[in-house]
């Protein structure tokens, strides 16, 4: 699995690609999420567009680090769920992670939510 980080205003997109399995992939994913928490990046889009396979162990760590990110005050959505990712997403992650067809759409919605969140905090 490979991860490319793309910061867009308040939102960070993690572009995931390759086969997501257990073992080292979990550490890669953990490192990326921890980095966002350290950087106080609270709005995250997981782009699954390049993922060729999502194994059960990967589902486990996505759920685990979703929980960690949310506990740290973050919000996570997903984008470009299709192909071999569609079924595991629907079976395991749909109730946790909202999905958008495109990354831009996911970023726009997250930006709006981030803006509202910031306004609410200021008020």
């Amino acid at each position: 699995m490979r991860i490319r980080r793309d910061d867009r205003d308040a939102v960070t997109v993690l572009h995931l690609s390759g086969a997501m399995t257990g073992g080292p992939d979990a550490e890669t994913f953990e490192g990326a999420v921890d980095e966002l928490i350290d950087d106080r990046r609270h709005w995250l889009v997981l782009d699954f567009g390049g993922v060729s396979f999502l194994g059960s162990q990967a589902i486990g760590y996505v759920a685990r680090y979703y929980a960690r990110f949310v506990r740290a005050g973050g919000q996570v959505v997903t984008a470009r769920i299709s192909g071999r990712v569609a079924l595991p997403y629907d079976l395991f992650l749909r109730q946790l992670l909202e999905a958008f067809d495109t990354v831009d759409e996911a970023v726009d919605v997250s930006c709006r939510r981030a803006g509202k969140d910031a306004s609410a905090t200021e008020a």
Partner: peptide, 14 residues
């Protein structure tokens, strides 16, 4: 269809 989350996947499982 899927109507629930797998046990133990997520702490606050609905």
């Amino acid at each position: 269809e899927a109507t629930g989350m797998p046990p133990a996947l997520y702490g606050d499982c609905p």
